[in-house]
């Protein structure tokens, strides 16, 4: 049984805007799946339909085998949601927000209070449990949303751009936590603009463009489709334009080159050639995000 099975999903908003034009998509149980797309591509609409915040126009959606047209209640029990925008009551206390959410899922207070302690400790909010939500920092609010989404131990967590506007340290902390719950068996569906996030964490991904899935692939496999990578090389010595061109490189400044290396070429071959030409390499790293390049290529077609 798949975590998500979508067949020919259509959503047309009032006024005729077609947000989804017959989407077919399957997400396996236990997967860490990314849904990518430009703004307005249909990601949030798709998530809205899965979570009951948007009515679909047509098609079929099954969540862990539960058809949402037949048993949406059963389907919703398996889902935890972390939306893009803060949507908790700003004047409620942190622990109350989490415990109340458990209540909506039919979990007894005593269990909800006990579980909320564990989950708030895990996301580093236990000390703030009595704080009014409004007084939390942006990062803390984001973590509160994750704690709220997980309080009923869902089989699948859906996150809509969870790291938007989050600082680097917190983002890495969140990645670690999401990896941890995924390793424990929770399926994760993620939308994000940070393609580095996808490359680092996700196993499979889909790219949605103008309401249609234009690519569905394994992330590792996808990266191998890139014909070449660009590396930024910093040299101790100055390098002339002629020399740079000889290495099929773009000169960034007197000490820096961007070298395009084809997949079949060996990295150490390039390094060796530079060394033989008398250059000392002080830094060598991939330039930019590989997936980002591919993403831009696909969405700009």
């Amino acid at each position: 049984m798949n975590a998500i099975e979508i067949k020919n999903l259509v959503k047309t908003y009032k006024g005729g805007v077609k947000a989804l034009k017959g989407v077919d998509l399957c997400v396996a149980q236990g997967d860490f799946f990314a849904l990518l797309g430009a703004n307005g591509a249909g990601k949030t609409t798709l998530i809205g339909i899965l979570t009951g915040l948007v009515n679909k126009t047509g098609g079929q959606v099954k969540i862990f085998g539960n058809d949402i047209d037949v048993d949406f209640e059963g389907a919703k029990k398996s889902i935890g949601v972390v939306p893009q925008e803060f949507n908790f009551h700003m004047f409620e206390r942190v622990q109350d927000i989490v415990v109340n959410q458990a209540g909506y899922f039919g979990i007894d207070d005593s269990i909800a209070v006990r579980d909320s302690e564990g989950i708030l400790k895990r996301v580093g909010l236990w000390e703030k449990r009595r704080a009014i939500a409004r007084t939390l920092s942006g990062g803390m609010k984001r973590r509160l949303m994750i704690a709220r989404g997980l309080i009923h131990h869902p089989r699948m967590l859906i996150l809509d751009e969870p790291t938007a506007g989050v600082d680097v340290e917190l983002r890495h902390g969140m990645w670690e936590y999401l990896r941890h719950i995924n390793a424990q068996g929770t399926t994760i569906l993620l939308t994000t603009h940070y393609l580095e996030e996808v490359e680092q964490m996700c196993r499979n991904c889909a790219i949605i463009k103008e309401g249609e899935i234009v690519l569905l692939d394994n992330v590792r496999h996808l990266l191998t489709r890139m014909p070449q990578d660009t590396y930024r090389v910093t040299l101790k010595e100055r390098i002339s334009l002629e020399k740079a061109q000889a290495f099929n490189a773009v000169k960034v400044d007197d000490h820096t080159l961007d070298i395009e290396i084809k997949k079949r070429e060996e990295l150490n071959e390039v390094i060796l050639r530079l060394a033989q030409s008398g250059f000392v390499i002080t830094d060598f790293h991939p330039k930019g995000n590989r997936l980002e390049k591919l993403f831009l290529e696909i969405v700009s077609k």
Partner: peptide, 16 residues
Amino acid sequence: AKFQRNIEEILVSPTP
């Protein structure tokens, strides 16, 4: 709850 969007807490839950 609609304005602050926390009605979504209930709408995403299995509460009938």
